[in-house]
Design a protein around this nucleic acid. Structure first.
Length: 292
DNA sequence: CTTCAATGTGCAG
DNA sequence: TGCACCTTGAAGT
């Protein structure tokens, strides 16, 4: 689940659900790992949440400390409402609860499996954000593609590796990386410095759109309308009746299957400890002038 | 039933 | 470079 779109969506949903309300904070099954933190937040008004890349920050009234959450690979923050508060399931590191004064209904958020759940001073938060690159989902100067280009355009590392580095672009994960490179027919293995700035500007603009769509539908969707039918048919065949949870994709997790555009088998290879997926025909090996 | 891989990252060696 | 983190669902036996 968690690439940047997930955290921005959670920031919106948390603010909608709890913003302006006093919350009860607890760490029910947190193995003691966030009990002190939860106690510091308990009974405070939640002001608002925001995200930068894959990091979520939540501000509370009456304290400078900021709640910082990073979901890692499989963390989840689930927000729900009901008449009665259910018992926590699994290792709930943090639970936030607010009760509606008029009808007594409760809204709660349960955090499980997160890599980070901690309270940061404003200085610590700023230091963390300072280590992150521009975020396509933020506004104005926080989403400056030139900052990313300053890194990419001079690097001998592959574009595929660079796109995963959070200090180059904050919020891209393995799915957006593979899909963005495919959509722009870019060879994942070409050096960053072999790219032209115009190409990067196109990729960035596309990424901004894709990730905003991801926030809106709460899912990564990257397939263009003209390929949707083929993508759906391919997914259906592959699923064999199972229910599909993730969005349609061109190449992500489609290794061995025919490319939706050209029919060539999609390939995969481990690059910097992550599975990279690409179409060798749509994204042919880039050869520099010197290599030709 | 058990095992493994996953949309991620930090740290040990 | 590989593991730990510690959850979920798919895949294997």
């Amino acid at each position: 689940m968690p690439e940047g779109h997930t955290l921005h969506r959670l920031a919106i949903d948390l603010t909608d659900a709890f913003g302006g309300s006093v919350v009860a904070a607890s760490s029910p099954q947190g193995q003691g790992r966030f009990e002190d933190g939860a106690a510091q937040l308990d009974g405070r008004e939640l002001i608002a949440a925001d995200a930068w890349g894959k990091h979520l920050f939540v501000r509370f009234a009456g304290t400078e400390l900021v709640l910082h959450v990073h979901l890692g690979l499989y963390g989840k923050l689930r927000i729900a409402g009901a008449d009665v508060l259910p018992d926590p399931v699994g290792q709930v590191r943090l639970r936030l609860v607010t009760t509606d004064r008029s009808d007594g209904r409760v809204t709660w958020a349960d955090l499980r499996g997160a890599t980070a759940c901690e309270l940061l001073t404003p200085e610590e938060r700023d230091a963390l954000v300072a280590r992150l690159g521009p975020d396509p989902l933020r506004e104005g100067a926080d989403a400056d593609p030139d900052r990313a280009w300053a890194r990419i355009g001079r690097s001998r590392k592959s574009v595929a590796a660079l796109l995963m580095e959070q200090d180059v672009v904050a919020g891209i994960g393995n799915v957006y990386r593979a899909e963005l490179l495919f959509r722009h027919r870019v060879d994942p293995f070409r050096e960053g410095r072999s790219m032209r700035v115009g190409r990067w500007q196109e990729m960035w603009a596309d990424l901004v759109e894709l990730m905003h769509l991801g926030v809106a539908v709460n899912r990564i969707e990257t397939v263009r309308p003209e390929h949707e039918a083929a993508a759906r048919a391919a997914a259906k065949q592959y699923e064999g009746g199972r229910r599909r949870r993730s969005g349609l994709s061109y190449v992500y997790r489609r290794d061995g299957q025919p490319c939706l555009v050209c029919g060539t088998q999609v390939r995969t290879e481990v690059l910097v400890a992550r599975n990279l997926f690409w179409c060798p025909r749509c994204q042919p090996r880039f050869r520099s002038r010197a290599q030709r």
